[in-house]
C-alpha cells in the first residue's frame, strides 16, 4: 500500500487546518484551527474522504493522535488546567505550529 511520508514526530506542535471542506470529513469541527501536540503516529490509513466515495484513498495518509489542552479549546472549560483531549487526525489536516 502506497503511503505519504509522515511529517511530524511525537511532541511536535501542530495546528489543525481551519478548512470547511465539503464531503465526508473525519476531522471534528470543534478541533479545526486549534493547536496541539502530536501524541503518537498511529500508522498510515487510506483516506476516509476518498473511501466514502468508493475510491481507494491511496496513497494512505499518516494518522496521528493529537493532544489538546481543554482550556485552550473551550474558554469556559470548567475543569483543571491539566485536562486534555486526544483526537485522531490525518496528516493532510495538520500543519506545523510553534
Amino acid at each position: 500500500m502506497s503511503a505519504v511520508e509522515p511529517r511530524f514526530a511525537p511532541g511536535a506542535r501542530v495546528r489543525v487546518r481551519r478548512a470547511d471542506a465539503p464531503g465526508h470529513i473525519r476531522t471534528p469541527w470543534y478541533i479545526r484551527g486549534q493547536t496541539g501536540e502530536i501524541e503518537r503516529l498511529c500508522g498510515a490509513f487510506p483516506n476516509p474522504e476518498e473511501l466514502a466515495y468508493n475510491r481507494p484513498g491511496l496513497p494512505a495518509q499518516p494518522l496521528y493522535r493529537v493532544r489538546f489542552r481543554q482550556r485552550e479549546l473551550w474558554p469556559d472549560y470548567a475543569g483543571p488546567a491539566a485536562d486534555t483531549i486526544e483526537v485522531e487526525i490525518y496528516q493532510h489536516w495538520l500543519e506545523p505550529a510553534r
Partner: peptide, 15 residues
C-alpha cells in the same frame, strides 16, 4: 478530584 487529569479520547478514525 482536581488533582486527577481527565483525558478524553475522541474516537474519530481507525483506532
Amino acid at each position: 478530584g482536581d488533582d486527577v487529569e481527565l483525558r478524553v479520547h475522541d474516537s474519530t478514525a481507525d483506532m
